Amino acid sequence: MPDGTALDRTKLLAARYRAATDRPYLASALYSLTVVPTAAVPTMGVDRHWRCYVSPAFVDATPVQELAGVWIHEAAHLLRDHHGRAGRLPAADQRDHARINLAQDCEINDDLIADGLPLPAGRVVPGDFGLADGQLFEAYLPGIPPQPHHDCGSGAHGRPAPWDLDGKAGPCVSPVEAEALRRATAEAMRGHERARGHLPGGWRRWAQEVLEPTVDWRRVLAGAVREAVAWAGGAVDYTYRRPSRRAPALRGAVLPSLRRPLPRVAIVIDTSGSMGEDDLAAALAEVTGVLREVGVRGDRVSVLACDADVQAVTRVASAEQVELGGGGGTDMRVGIAAALAQRDRPQVVIVLTDGYTPWPAEIASCRLIAALVGDAPPDPPAWVETVRLGPTPGRPT
Rank of each mutant, 00 (worst) to 15 (best):
G4K: 09
G4F: 12
G4A: 07
A6D: 03
A6E: 10
A6G: 06
L7N: 04
D8V: 07
D8W: 00
D8A: 04
T10Y: 00
T10H: 05
T10P: 14
A14N: 11
A14C: 04
A15C: 06
A15K: 11
A15E: 07
Y17M: 06
Y17A: 12
R18M: 14
R18F: 07
R18G: 13
A19F: 12
A20Y: 14
D22R: 09
D22W: 09
R23H: 13
P24L: 10
P24K: 12
Y25S: 04
Y25N: 08
L26I: 04
A27Q: 03
S28Q: 11
S28Y: 13
A29D: 04
L30S: 00
Y31P: 04
S32L: 00
L33E: 05
T34P: 13
T34M: 03
V35P: 01
V36F: 10
P37M: 01
T38S: 03
T38E: 01
A39E: 01
A39F: 03
A39G: 06
A39H: 07
V41P: 14
V41A: 07
P42V: 11
T43H: 08
M44A: 08
V46H: 02
V46T: 15
V46P: 14
H49L: 07
C52L: 15
C52I: 15
Y53I: 14
V54N: 06
V54A: 03
V54F: 11
P56T: 08
P56A: 01
D60G: 13
A61E: 05
T62G: 07
T62M: 05
P63K: 10
P63W: 06
P63I: 01
V64C: 10
E66Y: 14
L67P: 09
A68W: 14
W71K: 02
H73T: 01
E74R: 06
E74S: 00
E74Q: 02
A75H: 03
A75F: 12
A75T: 13
A76C: 13
H77W: 08
H77Y: 11
H77A: 10
H77I: 15
L79D: 03
L79Y: 05
R80L: 13
R80C: 13
R80H: 11
R80Q: 06
H83E: 12
G84F: 00
R85N: 02
A86R: 06
G87F: 10
G87I: 12
R88W: 00
R88Y: 00
L89V: 09
L89E: 10
A91C: 04
A92H: 13
D93R: 09
Q94W: 05
R95D: 02
R95F: 11
R95E: 13
D96N: 09
H97R: 08
A98T: 09
R99E: 02
R99Y: 00
I100N: 10
L102W: 10
D105T: 13
D105R: 04
C106G: 00
E107P: 13
E107G: 00
E107A: 03
I108E: 04
I108Q: 00
N109C: 06
D110L: 07
L112W: 08
I113K: 15
A114W: 05
D115Q: 15
D115H: 15
G116E: 07
G116M: 12
L117F: 08
